[in-house]
Design a protein around this nucleic acid. Structure first.
Lengths: 223, 223
DNA sequence: GCAAAAGTGTTTTCAATACACCCATGG
DNA sequence: CCATGGGTGTATTGAAAACACTTTTGC
């Protein structure tokens, strides 16, 4: 590393905000840092990008290896290139949003014993290293701007969800209450979701009908 | 460059699609390539990113140095990291959209004698090198999705534009005709544009009123 | 039978659309 | 005076928003 071209060799990392919905709360998957700097702080999952892979491949592999997750929805979000964003080195970050349904998040996931991970509610984020809080917040804002378009949240609800659950997810991300009747009317009349004929069991009150997302429905503006 | 970390040193380039509106046509500024490979083909302006600058700084400098343009609207668009996108080397591209008004584009621009540039209508793009056509097309699609939100096109019209000119720009980018009365109604009733009290001169027919964009108007969905 | 949560229809309001005639200028 | 392009108002339609009572279950 001593040619005049050195200054053109950049280090890139991918950083992913993986969201799921659990117990009615939108949560994000974070990793606890085990070494200095920022030991004990939390970071977004990610990886250094090598010359032999695309950014997407890098992320898919990183998520599989570090988190034991496969088959999630990924969406490129933003690039962070401030020279001082990492105090030790110039690292350019490429941020992505990932969405997984809660069945995959909880039952199909193979946890790695050497990595401490945890899901956090997006209104209760722990202390985060580097500029990762800023990146996460921007990703949440991006998610918010995306869900007004139909079908984006379907990655969080693969099958057999109830309308109150779906409405709850939209309300949390949009940060406001929605009318139950209008919400139902919109999703059903646009053919976005399909009645399974079943109802859920347990819990208080009247059982809710179960739905799944109509894969054929085309994208359109919702809110 | 022979440590085991070599594979983590990536080369990055910025690539910008700079749009303006001229004679009622949306045009993009391209550079003609003077050397092999792809000699004689056209490329998007851009630059290799060094370790000591942000991507934004890099682009601002590249546009100033190569094109003699300053003060344009810039918006990050997408990252291209296919391993084979440049046959000679692995280069990751970060694409941006740039918007300049036609006064700046034509009168405030200092052309560089050693660089051959030209504005092309977006429905008449010449043969382009590498994957630049794909990148440009994606940027055009991105622009199309952006202008449905107010105020994005104001960078193309700094002052003293006519409503037919503005409508024409929207029609070209959206690819469809719009109703004159409804178009006018929307922009004026939302307070997005302000009447200067003047009218333009020359040309056939009744002179059109001149407007400027209201800087205080807040963003909202238009189409 | 009552508490808890889900399901359902109608009215009102506002924004989007469709539509046709008059006006100012240049030649 | 006529050709050209710009400016203007109204009626209709459709989607969004507001709103309250009934139904099903567990205890």
């Amino acid at each position: 590393m001593d040619s005049g071209l050195d200054k053109y060799y950049n280090i890139l990392e991918s950083l992913v905000s993986i969201f799921t919905i659990d117990q009615g709360f939108i949560k994000v998957l974070l990793i606890r840092k085990k070494s200095e700097p920022y030991k004990g702080y939390w970071i977004l999952p990610g990886n250094i990008i090598s010359k032999e892979e695309t950014v997407e491949d890098n992320i898919v592999n990183a998520i599989d290896e570090k988190l034991g997750l496969r088959d999630l929805y990924l969406k490129q979000c933003h690039i962070y290139s401030d020279v001082g964003r990492d105090p030790d080195d110039r690292i350019i970050a490429i941020s992505y949003i990932g969405l997984v349904d809660n069945v995959t998040a909880w039952y199909k996931r193979e946890e790695r014993s050497d990595i401490e991970t945890s899901w956090f509610r997006i209104d209760d984020i722990p202390k985060m290293a580097y500029d990762h809080l800023e990146i996460l917040n921007r990703n949440i804002a991006f998610l918010r701007s995306k869900i007004v378009n139909s079908n984006v949240l379907k990655s969080l609800f693969p099958s057999d969800f109830t309308l109150p659950e779906l409405q709850n997810a939209y309300e949390q991300i949009l940060g406001k209450k929605l009318d139950r009747r209008n919400f139902r009317k919109k999703f059903i009349s646009l053919g976005l979701i399909v009645d399974t004929g079943d109802t859920n069991v347990g819990g208080n009150g009247r059982p809710a009908k179960l739905y799944y997302f109509n894969e054929e429905a085309k994208e359109r503006t919702l809110f």
